[in-house]
Write a protein that binds this DNA or RNA. Structure first.
Lengths: 210, 210
DNA sequence: GTCACAATGTACGAAATGGTACGTTCAAGT
DNA sequence: ACTTGAACGTACCATTTCGTACATTGTGAC
């Protein structure tokens, strides 16, 4: 029985895992083909070649993750709560999508040249900024957030704190002889990230005493 | 004229550049050999093979960067100033050593398995923590820093803010259509990082109004 | 039913690439 | 000067790995 869409999905899934694990040059087409229900022939049939497959896997990873992010709704929460929720969610979300994180790492190793070739990816990224912008604006309006901060830069900081966590866990853990992936350590890092962002954004006058 | 040490240094330098650019599997031994004053034969003579060379290049990158860090002296500064200086330095240092950052990224892609094989690297990393520990302790003692924070976790946060900056510049810039590597953007991100750490560590009562 | 075309399987080719065999030169010790 | 072992050059090999040629099967339109 033939099933074009199913075959493509199957290939893409396997490809994502393989590329995320080994990188573009480290991944093996034959290996991907072997793990697939389909054959190597099909990879070339549908995706043209290794780079085409990588690009599609990358696009797919971005799409999936962005979709997940869109599910978050913080509009109904008061600003401080909303911000906290946003950071917590980002932290957990990154943690849940390790393959995506690794794809982004790999893509950065390649200086983002494949991202360049994909208009699809660049389009749907304004929404992340839009969310944080609204939360921030509400906080400033209500007087709990200090004014003058750039939403994009805020997004950057949050991303940094959450991304690093997944991306550099291996080396960090080995160097300091401590497993930063353990549930307890993870919880601490999450708390820290939330607190850090909060203290950065909330007016010092509105901060809790310590 | 023969020059064993020189040859090895030469090879290592080229290898670092090549590995940092293309990753372990992406790097080409022939390419490295071609860029070297030596020949491919020498690579195998001195380093055993591709993995051996990668490991040595990684070790070397860590060594160089840690040496540079050791040059920083913040003991004579008051705590808040010292902390600021530490973050600023880390930020700049990471920025100056992009090849090192990329090696760490690559090593994380490999789950730190080569770092594992190198006792040399793990040894000299306690010093970074020692420095920040002393600064933090002084700050707590003098009453400007809030107590109860973990130096290792603090180091983690600082690293995250500074590392991400170099590691994810490419994708971030392309997605938001803005060059985060430009001097102005860089200065802003640095200021943000410093401020973020400061507000995280300094007691809220001692924070400037905003 | 059969025609046209999409979907798939198999086997193979060609180049890239890590690694080595073999031979040569240089420098230091005696 | 001669010996010995380290330092180095050249050419080559074996394998891996991306990619393709060729053949075949399924399927919807008429």
């Amino acid at each position: 029985m033939q099933d074009p869409e199913g075959t493509q999905r199957d290939i893409l899934e396997v490809a994502l895992a393989e590329f995320a694990l080994n990188g573009l040059s480290g991944a093996r087409i034959d290996e991907i083909a072997a793990r697939t229900r389909a054959s190597k022939r099909m990879i070339y049939y549908y995706f043209g070649g290794k780079e085409g497959l990588y690009l599609r896997a990358l696009e797919n990873a971005y799409l999936t993750v962005r979709e997940g992010e869109a599910a978050l709704d913080v509009e109904h929460l008061p600003p401080v709560e909303a911000l906290r929720r946003l950071v917590e969610f980002t932290f957990d979300h990154h943690h849940r999508h390790e393959a995506f994180i690794r794809m982004v790492m790999i893509e950065n190793i390649h200086h983002g040249e494949y991202l360049d070739r994909s208009p699809a990816i660049r389009e749907q990224n304004a929404s992340a900024i839009a969310t944080i912008s609204r939360v921030y604006q509400r906080g400033v309006d209500s007087g709990v957030f200090r004014p003058g901060l750039e939403p994009v830069e805020l997004h950057w900081q949050i991303s940094a704190l959450c991304f690093f966590n997944v991306s550099n866990r291996a080396t960090f853990s080995k160097i300091f002889g401590r497993n930063f992936g353990a549930p307890k350590a993870l919880a601490a890092l999450k708390r820290n990230a939330v607190e850090m962002v909060e203290r950065y954004v909330v007016r010092s006058a509105a901060l809790p005493e310590d």
